[in-house]
Design a protein around this nucleic acid. Structure first.
Lengths: 343, 343
DNA sequence: CTGAAAGCGCTTACAG
DNA sequence: CTGAAAGCGCTTACAG
């Protein structure tokens, strides 16, 4: 079913059909002709061949999401959901590729995408960090999703981690906690990103800590201390870190955990020490993952705005006026039962 | 950078370049010519335009994953990971679209994909169920991923849920449980799929139950009973179901939960009734999601083979000889500390 | 062994 | 207002 067949059926030239179907009005086709073309196209169930159109116009109605692990790991991939929603409104479809953080794979994948005439790229990271986008990317419009440029400027969308840090501390302050608040989940000196992603310094960590310190400083307080984890912010990490903390004789009134999995581990360590949440120790964390709903009591967690990140990134990609600046999306606190009054 | 430029630089015809670059040997080009073309292509950094090639050959090196929620929800999307791995080996890239289970969106999306000359489709479901693939799909090779055809036959890959059911029961039998094993997570009569997906009868439920019953029957036993949930196999569902069960005066020695989230809720209900896992009650579940690691003790859970499902689906898609049959992939038990000896 | 030519299905200046 | 023609970048029978 080609445009030529539609033209034949309508008794007009191929040009005329093309003009009608692409909505060009500068040719002032007669209403009657326009109608005849429309009718013929519909009767034949004609759909334009996008490959041919792309070859001719250089536009494909196709965007790619290039990420480290986003589409293959849990949770983070709600970004894909937001992106797909926004793309559907623009009649555009999405290539998805994960590079596992491997530069060689990344180059190969981007080459392969460029060969296919894509209209733009969302360059995404599983967690918030600074990245150096590959040089190839400059051949096409792109937006950084959940990451910021390590050097220079670029259009980027990230969660507002500093504000989230402030919110976490303010929630505890509101319940009367103040001088015995610990942060669980800093990284060992020289390690910036856990076992699986050494060197990928998560902005989430530094910015959340900064926000926490800001909020505490506002009331003349400071963190009682921070507790390191060895690994990747897992449940085991959280359990070990809090076990170690309690072994030092510390008496935390509240814990701010780097993420939900660490908080789940904190629950376990507290439980083993016969400390109750929230009666003895309050806990807040970040992520808003399914884990926050699966532990008892449900965790007060500041949720990553995954869907909104994906959506905004697409909007920026299509916005011709968009400046190369970093957009920060608010994180929302989802309250559970893990925060109670300070003793 | 086009093929014509390579031809000019090498001093040969465009045909010759095409033959060399596509690896056609039936033309018996001289070694010297072949070499000259290779060198010219490399020096110019030539990469073929896939759009032009697709227009000419009708093949695009592109596959689409069409699903309800797979790429936008947690956990299930590890299927994407498996698919991407297998596709990379075949130099093929992946379109991802989620239809939210809406037939209108699905039709629109498949039309849009067909317009782009895709080589095949993976038609996927978030959870294992029977589907009626849209008629449009027959225009292109396809494989059902995590679902089976409601009528007729098709190439399909699903987890071996019956075997998983048997494994769950056998694990409990091994620890001496027998006559007080309950299943948590059946659906109310007439409801087949929870609030969000009414009517999407999950095969997971019926097949896991069947496996459980088989294994128990093998030793002359049967389930003590089943407990319904109202909703979508959430933590709240599990908590309520087990609370209700205990209120009846039942004394389960072990629970088999429909999934990890339900098990997390079961833990909570048991804990509130001052019953310990596994000393008082053993628990096993299905999924192998991050939740199974976040609860205490870690849950013995039979993991969905997500990555393997995705990988196998791609292999079937590219296998010209593949018959329209259902392939079942083994689920693997990941042992936690939630199963102990029967009292 | 090589090269000129047709054609995949479109869009778009350009001439009428 | 309309139509013939060129061309996007390839592949591939076909003639030499």
């Amino acid at each position: 079913m080609t445009l030529a067949q539609v033209a034949e059926r309508a008794g007009v030239s191929r040009s005329a059909v093309s003009f009608v179907l692409t909505g060009r009005t500068d040719q002032r086709l007669s209403v009657e002709t326009t109608e005849r073309v429309r009718k013929a196209a519909e009767e034949l169930g004609y759909r334009p061949n996008m490959t041919a159109r792309t070859l001719r116009t250089g536009r494909s109605g196709t965007v790619a999401l290039v990420s480290d692990f986003v589409s293959s790991t849990s949770h983070a991939n709600s970004m894909v959901r937001g992106a797909l929603d926004a793309l559907r409104e623009r009649d555009t479809i999405l290539f998805t590729v994960d590079t596992q953080g491997d530069a060689g794979q990344e180059k190969q994948v981007i080459d392969s995408l460029l060969d296919r005439t894509i209209d733009g790229v969302l360059y995404a990271s599983m967690f918030t960090r600074a990245v150096t986008p590959p040089a190839l990317l400059t051949q096409v419009p792109f937006v950084l999703l959940n990451c910021v440029p390590a050097v220079g400027v670029a259009r980027a969308v990230v969660p507002d981690e500093v504000a989230a840090g402030r919110d976490s501390a303010n929630e505890l302050l509101r319940f009367g906690h103040r001088d015995h608040i610990w942060f669980i989940g800093t990284l060992p000196p020289g390690v910036t990103g856990g076992l699986s992603w050494r060197g990928w310094a998560p902005l989430a960590l530094s910015e959340r800590l900064e926000g926490i310190r800001q909020a505490l400083a506002d009331v003349g307080a400071e963190l009682a201390g921070t507790q390191m984890v060895d690994d990747d912010w897992t449940t085991e990490d959280g359990r070990e870190a809090v076990t170690r903390l309690l072994a030092t004789g510390a008496h935390p009134s509240a814990l701010i955990c780097a993420n939900d999995a660490v908080a789940a581990g904190a629950y376990q360590a507290l439980h083993r020490a016969e400390l109750r949440v929230p009666e003895d120790v309050s806990v807040v964390a970040f992520d808003g993952s399914p884990i926050s709903r699966a532990i008892d009591p449900p965790l007060t967690s500041i949720a990553l705005p995954q869907v909104e990140l994906g959506r905004r990134a697409v909007e920026l990609l299509f916005d011709k006026e968009a400046q190369p600046v970093i957009h920060r999306i608010a994180m929302t606190m989802v309250r559970g039962g893990s925060v109670g009054p300070a003793r």
